[in-house]
Computed example of a mutant assay.
Amino acid sequence: MPALTRPSRRARLTHTVGLMVALATAAATPAVAAPQNQRLTVVELFTSQGCSSCPPADANLVTLSRRPDVLALSFSVTYWDHLGWRDTFGKPEFTRRQYAYEPQLGERGPFTPQMVVNGRISRVGFNLAEIEHAISSAPTLSGPHITLGSREVSIGRGAEPAAEADIWLVAYDPNIVEVPVRRGENSGRTLPHVRVVHRLERLGGWDGMPLRIARSETPPGLRTAILVQLPSGGAILSAVTE
């Protein structure tokens, strides 16, 4: 894959065996929904159907999505679309989200596949052992309590952040979606995706004081998550999902 800013020369290893094992494990393990008030670890995968190194990471996210203590989210970026295949889930706002993370995480630029844990830790997404270690070592989210209703979101009182935190609504598909790729680096392959994000919307800001904020209705078939996060790619303070 040709270089962009720094994309993944390091992520071009072949992990076919790991992919097969991850898919087999995922298929054998039933998905479990997390209760709203459980302290979650947020794992964001930045991926692309046009990246030959991404399928093992997509499979790893399937495995992680089975854990009730993990909120796994898949963001499809757009900067590999020029390689011959336009990612069917890619949106510019997802690419912007990844770009915002990189300076905060000490990365020189975006790459795929990248997993970000709680907005604090960056790892290459195809190494499941490294991701699981990052999850186990990540500080527990200790931000405000979130109540997610059908028409509004309530954020509780908490320590005032240094800068107003963002309140993000994330609408995602909880199911595994099989995507046949007809061109580009993954031509001829059918790639499984899970927890694909379809919408990312900033609802407002949180300054430590309790508030209620209206939310739009989630389209049928999708689920909603709410993230309270420090601005400009900062740490995630709290998270909840349906």
Rank of each mutant, 00 (worst) to 15 (best):
T29P: 02
G18K: 01
R39L: 13
M20E: 10
E44P: 00
T25K: 11
A57R: 00
L19N: 05
A26W: 05
A22Y: 03
T14R: 03
A31N: 11
Q36Y: 10
P35A: 14
P55D: 08
A11N: 11
S8K: 02
R10S: 11
T41E: 04
C51Y: 04
T41R: 03
R39W: 13
C51K: 02
E44Y: 00
P30Y: 10
A11S: 13
P55G: 10
R67C: 04
A28V: 07
S53H: 00
S48K: 05
Q38W: 12
N37I: 10
L64W: 03
T29G: 08
A31C: 13
S8H: 05
A59V: 06
F46G: 06
T16A: 06
N37F: 13
R39F: 12
C54H: 00
T14K: 01
M20V: 11
R10P: 10
S8Q: 07
A57W: 01
P68T: 07
L19G: 02
P55F: 07
S8P: 08
L13V: 09
L23C: 15
S48A: 12
A24H: 10
R39S: 15
E44W: 01
T63Q: 07
P35N: 14
Q36F: 10
A27H: 14
R12W: 00
L64Y: 07
V62L: 14
T16I: 06
A11L: 09
P56G: 02
A31H: 15
H15P: 06
A26D: 12
T41K: 01
S48I: 06
S65W: 09
P68M: 05
P30S: 12
T14I: 02
C54A: 02
N60I: 00
D58A: 03
Q36L: 11
T25R: 13
A27N: 15
Q38L: 12
R9M: 12
N37R: 15
V21K: 13
Q49P: 05
N37A: 15
C54R: 01
V32R: 15
A31F: 11
A27C: 14
V42A: 08
S52D: 03
G50S: 00
V42I: 10
P30N: 09
P68L: 06
P68S: 05
G50F: 01
P56E: 06
E44Q: 00
